[in-house]
Computed example of a mutant assay.
Amino acid sequence: MKWRRSAAVSDAALAADSVLRLSVLLRAGVAPLRAWTYLADAGDPIAERVRSVLAAGADPRAVFADAGDPWPDVGAAWRVATTVGAPLAGSLHDVAEALRDGQQAADEVRVALAEPAATARLMSWLPLVAVGLGVALGFDTLAVASNPVGMVCLALGAALIVASRQWSAALVRRAQPAPGVPGMDAELTAIALGGGVSIERARALVREARPEDAGGDVDRALALSRSAGVPAIDLLRSTAWLARHRSRTEGRLRAASLSSRLLLPLGVCTLPAFLLLGVAPMMLSIFSSGVLAI
């Protein structure tokens, strides 16, 4: 099976599939170098690079870091698991499931954002459609460019179109899900604790492997574990799941509010541009032709 990228398959989905296959091979007793070789033979480009580095006896962290999201998280899990001696197959399986869950949440948000974003792009062409409509109806709307008032209308209308598109694009960008997989810090800490190290050592390893570790939810889960006397690993895994669930819910809420927010550039920029580029040239064309002359 060759690994082919399509519009429907994201980098995160491909990475999750690769990591899951890797964990299955490792669980079956295949050595890490041999497991990466099998994936490389199947056409996975990242696996080929990792295999070459491992064959040379080097650390593959640089390969993971350069591969782009979400491979740095996979590299962090690999580093933490190998450092503490946690089961590599189980650790990678957990990371693969986290990647799949996080990607599913991000895809749901993008699908929800697709409709309002497409509507905004469609409405931004409305003023130019008005110009074409005026020409189709027989109005000499393009000739008004020689009129000072017409020139002002055309300049303002063009500026409003640009402003509307940029404003709408900014609103859509802010509604997009944040990069990365929510809850990965908790997943990595659970992997470290699964290797039998102390909580302090586990947190230090995760921060070293993943410098962007925020740690707020993780620290609260560990504090609850100490005060309640319950297993920290289970609490951390539930914390990671809740972080992804919260990200999915917040993304859907952003998508729902985007439709109403996109009405602002529509009312402030697109509709005035429609009047300036569509209606105003028609009126100027009528007046210049003397139709309304007394």
Rank of each mutant, 00 (worst) to 15 (best):
A7G: 15
L14A: 13
L14G: 12
L14K: 04
A16Y: 03
S18G: 05
L20Y: 10
L22G: 05
V30Q: 09
A35R: 00
T37S: 12
T37C: 06
A42C: 09
A42T: 11
D44K: 00
A55E: 14
G57N: 01
D59W: 02
A65F: 00
A67W: 04
P70S: 07
P72C: 03
D73V: 09
A76V: 06
A77P: 01
A81I: 09
T83C: 00
G85R: 08
A89D: 15
G90N: 14
S91L: 03
D101G: 13
A105F: 00
A105S: 09
D107S: 14
D107V: 12
E108N: 11
V109L: 02
R110V: 06
A120L: 03
L122C: 00
L126G: 07
A130E: 02
L133Y: 07
G134A: 03
L142W: 15
S146F: 07
S146E: 13
N147R: 13
G150E: 03
M151N: 15
V152E: 05
C153P: 04
C153Y: 00
L154S: 10
G157D: 08
A158T: 13
S164G: 15
R165W: 08
A169K: 11
V172M: 00
R174Y: 12
P179A: 05
G183D: 02
M184Q: 04
A186T: 09
E187G: 01
L188R: 01
T189N: 08
I191E: 07
L193Q: 02
E200Y: 05
A202C: 03
A204C: 09
V206P: 04
A214W: 11
R220L: 14
A221V: 08
L224Y: 10
S227Y: 11
G229D: 11
G229W: 09
L235Y: 05
R237S: 01
R237H: 12
T239E: 07
A240H: 02
W241E: 13
R246F: 00
S247Q: 07
E250A: 15
G251T: 08
R254N: 13
R254Q: 12
R254F: 10
A255K: 06
S260C: 08
R261M: 12
L264W: 07
G267Q: 06
L275Q: 00
L276V: 06
G278I: 05
P281F: 08
M283S: 10
L284I: 04
S285M: 05
S288A: 15
A293T: 11
